[in-house]
Simulated assay, not measured.
Amino acid sequence: MGHFRSFVDGITFFFQGLRWVARTPRWWLFGLIPALIVSVLYAVALYFLGTNAGGLAEWATPFADGWGQAARNTLRTLVGLLIVGIGLVLSVVTFTAVTLIVGDPFYEKLSEKVEESYGEVPGGHEVPLWKSIPRSVRDSLITLGYVLLFTIPLFFLGFVPVIGQTVVPVLGALVSGFFLTVELTTLAMERRGMARKNRFAVLRGNKAAALGFGGLLFLVFLVPLGAVVAMPAAVAGGTIMVRTRLVSA
C-alpha cells in the first residue's frame, strides 16, 4: 500500500507543476520555446524514418532476398514496424534530454522561479554554461544507454502473443517513465551539488514516486504535441518533486 501511495504521489507532482505554470502563464510560454524548436526537428526526423522504414528493413534483412514473397514481405514489414517503434520510443525518451540541453538557460531560470515560490533557492553549486552543457550531454548519453538496455529487449518481447500486448507495454511505459524522471529532476538536483550517481541513487530509493511521475509523463508525451505543451509543467513538477519529496532544500 505504501508503494501505491508513493506512486500516486509521484503522479500528483506533475499536476502541481501544471498548476504552477497555469498560475504563471508567461513562464509556461517561456518554457515552450525550446520544446517547439526540438519538436520540429524530431517531427522531421520521424517523418524520414517512417518514409524510409521499408528501405531500412530491406537493408537489414539481405538474407531474406531468396525467400518466398509472402515470407519476405512479412518479415520486412515486422522489421519496419520494429524500426519505427524503436524510433518512436527513443524520440519520447530523448526528447526531454535534448530539449533540456537546447533550452538549458530557459529551464534553469524556470526551475529557479519554481524554487523561489517555495522559499530560498539553493546556491553555491553554480556551474558555467560552457561546463554544464557538455556534462549534460554526457549524462544524457549514459541515461540513453540505460534506456536502450531495457527498451530494446522489451520491444522484441512485444511480439510475444498476449504478454507482448499486455505486460510489455506497461513495463515499457514504467521503464521509460523512470528515465524521464531522471532527466526532469536533474536541474534541481544539480543545483544542490548532486552528481549523476547520487541522483540515480536518490531516485532508486524513491522508485515508486519516480515511476508515477515519469510514467504519466510518458503517456502525455505520446500524445501529439503533448511533450511540447507539457514540458514547462514537467520541469516545474520535477523541481517541486525534488524540493518537497526527494531532498531537502
Results as ranks from 00 to 15, higher is better:
residue 3 H to F: 13
residue 4 F to D: 00
residue 5 R to E: 14
residue 6 S to P: 00
residue 8 V to Q: 07
residue 9 D to K: 07
residue 12 T to M: 12
residue 13 F to P: 03
residue 16 Q to N: 05
residue 17 G to K: 00
residue 18 L to H: 03
residue 20 W to A: 00
residue 26 R to P: 05
residue 28 W to V: 00
residue 30 F to L: 11
residue 31 G to P: 10
residue 34 P to L: 14
residue 37 I to N: 01
residue 37 I to S: 08
residue 38 V to I: 14
residue 38 V to F: 12
residue 42 Y to K: 01
residue 42 Y to R: 00
residue 45 A to L: 08
residue 49 L to Y: 09
residue 50 G to M: 01
residue 52 N to M: 11
residue 52 N to S: 15
residue 53 A to M: 04
residue 56 L to H: 04
residue 56 L to C: 00
residue 56 L to G: 06
residue 58 E to P: 03
residue 70 A to V: 08
residue 75 L to N: 07
residue 76 R to W: 04
residue 77 T to Q: 11
residue 81 L to K: 05
residue 81 L to H: 12
residue 82 L to Y: 15
residue 85 G to W: 11
residue 86 I to V: 15
residue 87 G to N: 06
residue 87 G to C: 06
residue 93 V to I: 10
residue 94 T to I: 10
residue 95 F to W: 08
residue 99 T to G: 11
residue 100 L to D: 03
residue 101 I to F: 05
residue 101 I to D: 06
residue 101 I to K: 06
residue 102 V to M: 12
residue 104 D to I: 10
residue 104 D to R: 15
residue 106 F to K: 11
residue 106 F to S: 01
residue 107 Y to P: 01
residue 108 E to L: 12
residue 109 K to G: 01
residue 110 L to H: 04
residue 111 S to I: 10
residue 112 E to Q: 08
residue 112 E to G: 09
residue 117 S to Y: 09
residue 124 G to V: 05
residue 126 E to S: 09
residue 127 V to F: 03
residue 128 P to F: 09
residue 130 W to A: 02
residue 130 W to G: 01
residue 133 I to M: 04
residue 134 P to G: 07
residue 137 V to W: 07
residue 140 S to V: 04
residue 141 L to D: 00
residue 142 I to G: 11
residue 143 T to Q: 11
residue 143 T to E: 13
residue 148 L to R: 09
residue 149 L to E: 10
residue 149 L to F: 15
residue 151 T to P: 09
residue 152 I to G: 03
residue 154 L to P: 03
residue 158 G to V: 09
residue 161 P to W: 07
residue 162 V to L: 11
residue 165 Q to T: 13
residue 165 Q to H: 09
residue 166 T to S: 12
residue 169 P to Y: 06
residue 169 P to E: 00
residue 169 P to F: 05
residue 174 L to H: 10
residue 175 V to H: 11
residue 176 S to Y: 03
residue 179 F to E: 00
residue 180 L to A: 00
residue 180 L to I: 00
residue 182 V to N: 09
residue 184 L to Y: 05
residue 185 T to C: 10
residue 187 L to G: 02
residue 188 A to F: 09
residue 188 A to D: 09
residue 192 R to T: 13
residue 194 M to Y: 14
residue 194 M to Q: 14
residue 194 M to S: 12
residue 199 R to S: 06
residue 200 F to I: 15
residue 202 V to P: 05
residue 205 G to M: 08
residue 206 N to M: 10
residue 207 K to T: 12
residue 208 A to P: 01
residue 210 A to M: 03
residue 212 G to K: 02
residue 213 F to R: 10
residue 217 L to S: 03
residue 219 L to R: 04
residue 220 V to Q: 13
residue 220 V to W: 08
residue 220 V to L: 15
residue 221 F to M: 07
residue 223 V to T: 08
residue 223 V to D: 06
residue 224 P to I: 04
residue 228 V to Y: 06
residue 229 V to P: 01
residue 230 A to Y: 06
residue 231 M to K: 02
residue 232 P to M: 05
residue 236 A to V: 01
residue 237 G to M: 05
residue 237 G to N: 04
residue 238 G to A: 03
residue 238 G to F: 03
residue 240 I to A: 13
residue 240 I to N: 12
residue 241 M to H: 11
residue 241 M to N: 14
residue 245 R to Y: 15
